[in-house]
């Protein structure tokens, strides 16, 4: 084949491939203009997921953190988390310290002794707040981060260019750059589990039921009951992100 034939072929093949692809999609009945709402038996429009966290119940055992890493193949190094536990220590002089709880066995060494100067101390589980008004989605320059129809903020790793803009934009520090794929990564509420009717891994293993998973569109869900029975706060309400992770018994010092 000479150069002329090759160029002629290429000039025809490229549009032909596009046409073929479009025709195939149309033939399969795929809707090209909107995000899919039906996948198999699962109808995303019937759900609006959220999580409740009861601070008074969290014992800081870190099982949720370990389960999350196993379930979602998060790197085991201690600086990549989709969910993590913070230890708040508030002293009589008003000094507040926040420390991320390590997993065992390092955990045993860092447990602080009883200190009479400490007014109160407690654990706060943190994760992506799955904001209804997510700043990370607004800033993504390539549309890789988006909110699914059922309210979960996802990252399309084939589209993400790893610019880290969303990591900067998240007021909760919930995102990290995956060192293996070099794309932004975050909590998905275990999207592959919840769409099958399972609980997210962190909720599944929580020994004290400090985490409640549910659906705001389901009146009978445990999350709705959690909201009715407790005084509910969200993190950084002034940011107008409208988080779907709701906290009960949240201390005023928690940021």
């Amino acid at each position: 084949m000479n150069k002329r034939d090759f160029l002629k072929g290429a000039a025809l093949a490229i549009p032909a491939a596009g046409l073929l692809q479009t025709l195939t999609r149309v033939a399969e009945g795929e809707d090209l203009s909107t995000a899919a709402t039906m996948t198999g038996d699962y109808d995303a429009t019937q759900h609006w997921y959220g999580m409740g966290v009861d601070i008074d119940k969290c014992i800081g055992c870190n099982r949720c953190v370990e389960a999350c890493k196993t379930e979602n193949n998060v790197p085991q190094e201690p600086f990549f988390f989709r969910t993590w536990i913070e230890r708040y220590t508030i002293k009589a002089d008003g000094e507040v310290t926040v420390a991320c709880v390590s997993t065992q066995p390092a955990r045993g060494e860092e447990t602080p002794p009883v200190d009479p100067d400490v007014l109160r101390t407690f654990f706060v589980p943190k994760l992506c707040n799955q904001c209804a008004n997510p700043p990370c989605v607004q800033v993504c320059p390539v549309g890789a981060t988006f909110q699914s129809v059922d309210g979960v903020v996802l990252v399309d790793e084939t589209r993400c260019i790893g610019c880290r803009y969303c990591i900067q934009a998240c007021p909760y520090g919930a995102r990290y750059l995956n060192p293996e794929t070099h794309t932004a990564d975050k909590c998905t509420f275990c999207y592959h589990r919840i769409t099958k009717g399972l609980q997210p891994a962190c909720v599944e293993v929580c020994p004290t039921q400090a985490r409640i998973f549910g659906d705001f569109k389901d009146e009978a869900s445990r999350l709705e009951r959690f909201e009715r029975m407790n005084q509910i706060s969200v993190l950084k309400p002034d940011m107008n992100t409208r988080p779907k992770v709701r906290y009960a018994h949240l201390d005023g010092e928690v940021r």
């Binding site: 090209l32 203009s33 909107t34 995000a35 899919a36 996948t39 699962y42 995303a44 389960a67 196993t70 379930e71 390539v142 549309g143 890789a144 988006f146 699914s148 996802l154 990252v155 399309d156 790793e157 084939t158 589209r159 998905t188 275990c190 999207y191 592959h192 589990r193 769409t195 099958k196 399972l198 891994a201 599944e204 293993v205």
Partner: peptide
């Protein structure tokens, strides 16, 4: 539009196998 990409991502995400 990013919509077809996002729809594909949702399908990919749902297809992941659970460990628990």
């Amino acid at each position: 539009s990013a919509k077809p990409h996002q729809a594909a991502k949702v399908v990919r995400e749902m297809a992941k196998p659970p460990h628990y």
